[in-house]
Write a protein that binds this DNA or RNA. Structure first.
Lengths: 210, 210
DNA sequence: TGCTGTGAATCGATTCACAGCG
DNA sequence: CGCTGTGAATCGATTCACAGCA
C-alpha cells in the first residue's frame, strides 16, 4: 500500500498553493514553513508534515523555493489542467454561479447548464447554454464531465445527485442546503453559508461575557 | 471548567437541526439515532455522543422526540432569535448575497451594506442601503452588529476584517478567496468554492483507475 | 426488547523535538 | 547556523460495547 494520505491534508494543499502564488507575484523566491504558517494561520510543523507526504521540496537551512513548490503543488492537485463542469439549477443562485468570474481563471470551466424551468431552457446565461434537466442522463452518456455543480432546491438535490453519479460524475459541488450521502468513490463538497452562520451563533450566544 | 465542547460537534449540530425540521414537516414524532444517521450519513454513535454534551434528550428503547429535540437544538445554537449582519462588498458576489432569499427565513438579517465604489454607494440593493466603506468604522461604533459578511476582492479582505474586529464584530463569514488569521475570540468561516474544487481534483486525477 | 447515554478503547491528526544537511 | 524532514509523543475525535432504563 502506498501510504494513505489524510483527506485533511489534501484540503489544506490548495491554501498552500494559493499563498505560494501570492508570494510568486510578490517576486519572492524563498519561503520558510515558519513564514508560510504565519500567512495562513497554521503551524510550521503542520506544513512540513503535510508536504512530506509528497516529497522533499525544501532545502535545509533555507526553506522552500517558491516557484518550485508552487509548481509541485499545482501538479499534485491537478491545477495545471482544465476541468469541465456542468451546472444543474439555473435559478437566482445558479445564475450567480454562471456569471461568477472566479472559476474560469483557475481552470474550472462550466460547459453546460440544466434546469427544469421551461422559461430558461434554451437560453444562454453567462455564455452557457441551458438545457432541460430531462436531458441530463442522456447528456452524461455522450459527454465526459469532471464535476457537477448542484444549485437546485433542497428537495430536488438527491435525485439530481443520483443522476450525476449514475452518469459517471465523480466530484460534486453541492450548493443545495441538504446533506446527501454518496458512495465512497464519489467526492461531494457542500457550500452552505447558512450552516456556517448557524454554528457561529452558538459562540455568539455563549462565549460573550468571559 | 464546564467541559469544553469540541468545535466539530458544534459544526454538526446545525445539520441535525435541519434534518429534525425536515422530519417535523413530515409529521414524524420520534426518531432514533440510527435513522437520523442514515439521513445524514453519520454514525448513530456520533449523534448520541454529540447530543450527550448538552443533555439527555432521548428515551431508551424509543429514540428522540422530534419536536422536542429540534427545539432544544435551536435553542442551544441560538436559532430561536434573529441575528443582524452587515455586508461589505457589493460587487457581483455581494449583490447575489443581498438578493439571496435563504438567510432571512433562518433569522439572519442583512441590515446594511458597504462598498468603495461611488457608483453603488447611496443605492439600495435587495432592499438594503449601500454605504461608503469609509463610514464602516464609525457605523460600528454606533450600531451593534452580530455578523460581518465579507465579499470584497482578496487583497482588500484583511483590512476590512481588521475593521470589523476593531468594531466589535465577533463572527465573520468570509467569501473573499484568502485566509485571514483572526484572534481566538473571533469566529471566521470561509466560503470558498474554488478551494473545494481544487481539493476534489486531487482525487479526480488519482483514484480514477483502481 | 430496543434504544439511549457513556466510559473505555481505538483510531487519526497535530505537535514536539531533534538528527542531519546545505 | 537555520531550517527541513520525520519518527515519537501527545492530543483529540470517533467508535465500541454494554449497563440501564422505558
Amino acid at each position: 500500500m502506498p501510504i494513505e494520505i489524510p483527506a485533511v491534508v489534501i484540503d489544506r494543499l490548495p491554501t498552500y498553493a494559493r499563498a505560494l502564488t501570492f508570494l510568486e507575484d510578490q517576486g519572492r523566491d524563498v519561503v520558510s514553513s515558519q513564514e508560510l504558517g504565519t500567512i495562513l494561520g497554521v503551524t510550521p510543523a503542520q506544513i512540513r508534515k503535510d508536504l512530506s507526504y509528497f516529497g522533499r521540496f525544501g532545502k535545509q537551512g533555507r526553506g522552500y523555493n517558491v516557484r518550485r513548490l508552487a509548481l509541485e503543488l499545482r501538479q499534485i492537485l491537478g491545477l495545471d489542467r482544465q476541468w469541465s463542469m456542468i451546472l444543474i439549477g439555473v435559478g437566482h443562485l445558479g445564475q450567480a454561479i454562471l456569471t461568477y468570474d472566479g472559476f474560469q481563471p483557475q481552470g474550472f470551466i462550466i460547459v453546460d447548464a440544466f434546469d427544469v424551468n421551461e422559461g430558461v431552457v434554451g437560453s444562454k446565461v453567462g455564455g452557457v447554454n441551458v438545457h432541460a434537466v430531462s436531458e441530463l442522463r442522456e447528456y452524461l452518456q455522450k459527454r465526459q464531465v469532471d464535476i457537477g455543480i448542484v444549485a437546485v432546491p433542497a428537495d430536488e438535490a438527491a435525485p439530481i445527485i443520483a443522476d450525476l453519479i449514475a452518469g459517471g460524475v465523480r466530484s460534486i459541488l453541492n450548493y443545495a442546503p441538504t446533506s446527501v450521502p454518496v458512495p465512497e468513490r464519489v467526492q461531494i463538497k457542500n457550500i452552505d453559508p447558512v450552516l456556517a452562520l448557524q454554528s457561529m451563533t452558538f459562540y455568539l450566544k455563549n462565549g460573550g461575557v468571559e
